[in-house]
């Protein structure tokens, strides 16, 4: 079967993010860029399916600046077969990204699309659901378990929802978005990294796809969050409980 997995270039989650003084964006210097952690889980899940189902192919897709090649190479080094980069300005809003992905999906015709549930920069948690709707496909977000029927025609997905675990089932094709506990992504091996250099990485200019990517949710400005002041250190549990009772009055 053919599986498409998404890969977004995002700042390392441990990077401290600063807003530019004019509020137009974030300070991009000194940021280490990585594969969105939830997309790593998506790539891993795709590779696990490929390892189980003979003759499968894993295709990666990213939408963003040319430098996202680097993150696609990481996914190829993990074991994906080839990659597509739709070159576009960074910061496209979720609906624009979904429209671009739909074009790629229509041309690639995968049986399954696996995506991170959210990218840790924009935090919208939206593109998978939007692409599913635009395609008229079923969706299963926040997946913690993904099972395919023996004939690979049906997916059964366990989802992490409020208060428990929900199970959905649908005929393929469909879109699954990953939650943390779906799997533990592998590291790229040295031979994997060597092989990745020779794998196909196709670039498409976003303009060539003929989709409307004009912003409808326009960024007015960015601001840092209000600073929270550090409080005091206490010496003992006794003092802590006493202060919570008498000073903070919360217990």
């Amino acid at each position: 079967m053919k599986i498409l997995a998404t890969v977004k270039r995002v700042p390392d989650p441990e990077t401290s993010i600063k807003v530019k003084p004019d509020g137009s964006g974030i300070v991009a210097d000194n940021i280490k860029w990585v594969v969105n952690p939830f997309d790593e889980i998506a790539v891993e899940e795709s590779l696990r399916i490929k390892e189980k189902v003979a003759g499968s192919e894993v295709v990666l897709v990213s939408v963003g600046a040319k430098v996202a090649q680097e993150q696609l190479r990481t996914g190829l080094a993990m074991g994906a077969d080839r990659a597509i980069l739709v070159v576009a300005e960074d910061g496209l809003e979720p609906l624009a990204v979904a429209r671009v992905l739909v074009k790629v999906i229509e041309s690639e015709q995968p049986d399954l699309v696996v995506m991170g549930k959210q990218s840790i920069d924009d935090d919208s948690n939206a593109v998978g659901q939007m692409a599913a709707e635009l395609l008229g496909w079923p969706q299963a977000t926040f997946a913690s378990k993904l099972e395919l029927a023996g004939d690979q025609k049906t997916a059964t997905v366990t989802r992490e929802v409020d208060g428990g675990l929900e199970t959905l089932s649908f005929p393929l094709p469909g879109i699954v978005t990953t939650d943390l506990r779906l799997n533990e992504p592998r590291y790229a091996s040295l031979p994997g990294i060597m092989k990745a250099r020779k794998k196909e990485l196709k670039e498409i200019e976003v303009g060539a796809l003929g989709v409307d990517v004009a912003p409808k949710a326009r960024l007015v400005k960015m601001e840092p969050p209000p600073k929270r002041q550090a409080g005091k250190k206490v010496a003992s549990v006794e003092e802590l409980v006493h202060l919570l009772h008498t000073e903070a009055k919360v217990i």
Binding site: P11, P13, S16, I17, V19, I26, I120, D121, D122, D123, L219, V220, K221, M222, E223, P224, P225
Partner: peptide, 9 residues
């Protein structure tokens, strides 16, 4: 956005 390190209008 960015884990609450940025508030966007």
């Amino acid at each position: 956005m960015y884990a609450g390190n940025v508030f966007a209008t």
